[in-house]
Amino acid sequence: MCTSIYTTTTDQKHMLARTMDFSYPLASQPVFIPRKYTWNLAAATQTIENKYGFIGTGKNLGGAYFVADGVNEMGLAVAELYLPGEAVYHEDPLAEQLNLAPHEFILWLLGNCRSVDDVAQRLAAIRLIDIPVPVLGFVTPLHWIITDKTGACVVIEPTSLTEPLQFKQNPVGVMTNTPKLEWHIENLRNYLNTQPMQFASTTFGTFTADPFSQGTGTSGLPGGYTPPERFVRAAFFKEHIEAAKTETEGVHNAFEILSTVKIPKGIVQKSDQTDDYSQYISVMCNETSTFYYQDYNTNEISCVQLHDQLLASDQVVEFPISKTPIFKTF
């Protein structure tokens, strides 16, 4: 599951945001990964030393940190989402390529790339290997949405073993899950009748049918939580919400848009009767390298910026977050 959106404020702040929809309890939190952070590739004996510091949603698994989204000090932001039934990975590493487990790809992107163009120049050297996540014990079928300060928004979907990894331009600025991005974009053509404006009255013989109330223009929007339905709702709300003027307003808009696709506990259940729900929402600003985070259990939004003092640290920093509702009392 999961939904991601990319928006721009009128003062040209670019914001990548996402819901994390999952049934396994992730127990993650905002984590700062410093410059020169070193980690061992699961597919080989090679050790990677990151170049850039970044902040994202992460967790220590098996002695190393893994992240699902984040923004680095150069303004590159990335989120990984599920692509079940479509994502395919290589069985064997190649000595001449950088062999990454799927869950390691985002750690490499945020730690070593400065822009979408930088990723493009290095993408051919990446080979994704079919290796499970430590502790979890399964291979994650992933695709990635990548953005930067220029307004570029691209998607990487590893759906072929005969072709190298490549970018897909994302003109809508929305990503969910299976099917592939092209299908979702084409599917928007089924919703040309949805609009913010009220439909006018119409006649049937001598009877004039007036709208019951406001909102008739949105009556065609899908209301379920499948990836196609969430994609359409996110695209519609992103397109028509009142434009944000500043970063603060942009963060607020991102939470408002994602509230239309956020999954409460108990609404979507898997065959084993576990809840697939939105465990958190994160928002990243490319220009200020600021990370915003809200856990499912609270209305409080935590905020961490990659300021100079934090970037000077050579230690991983975990940021505790609230997991209870916050009320203002009078």
Rank of each mutant, 00 (worst) to 15 (best):
T274A: 09
Y6Q: 00
N299F: 14
D210Y: 12
G137H: 12
T329R: 14
P320R: 10
N112V: 05
W144M: 03
H143Q: 11
F327P: 00
H252P: 00
A234Q: 04
E163L: 11
S259N: 09
V119I: 10
I126G: 03
T274R: 12
I257V: 14
Q97E: 11
L306W: 04
A64L: 06
T218H: 03
T260K: 10
V316F: 07
T147F: 04
I263S: 02
V232P: 01
D295Q: 10
P179N: 09
G58Q: 07
K265A: 11
L123Q: 05
H240F: 15
T57V: 14
Q269A: 13
A27W: 11
D130C: 05
L94H: 14
V155A: 07
L110I: 10
F54E: 05
E287Q: 15
D118F: 07
T45K: 14
M15R: 00
P141Q: 11
V283G: 00
G111A: 05
Q309L: 10
G70P: 07
K270A: 11
L61I: 09
A125Y: 00
R230P: 07
C2N: 04
N297D: 15
I185L: 05
H184K: 04
H307T: 13
L161V: 09
I146F: 06
V304D: 12
P102N: 07
F237I: 08
W108N: 08
E73V: 03
R18H: 06
V78W: 02
L98H: 04
F105C: 06
D69A: 11
V268Y: 02
V317E: 12
T140H: 04
A254W: 00
D92A: 14
Y24V: 14
A101F: 03
A27T: 15
F199N: 15
F105G: 13
L188C: 05
L61K: 10
A124N: 11
V116G: 08
K59V: 07
N253K: 02
N50H: 14
V251Y: 00
N286Q: 14
V155Q: 04
G217D: 04
H307D: 15
N40F: 00
M175R: 12
N50A: 14
P30F: 03
P164W: 02
A120R: 11
T324S: 09
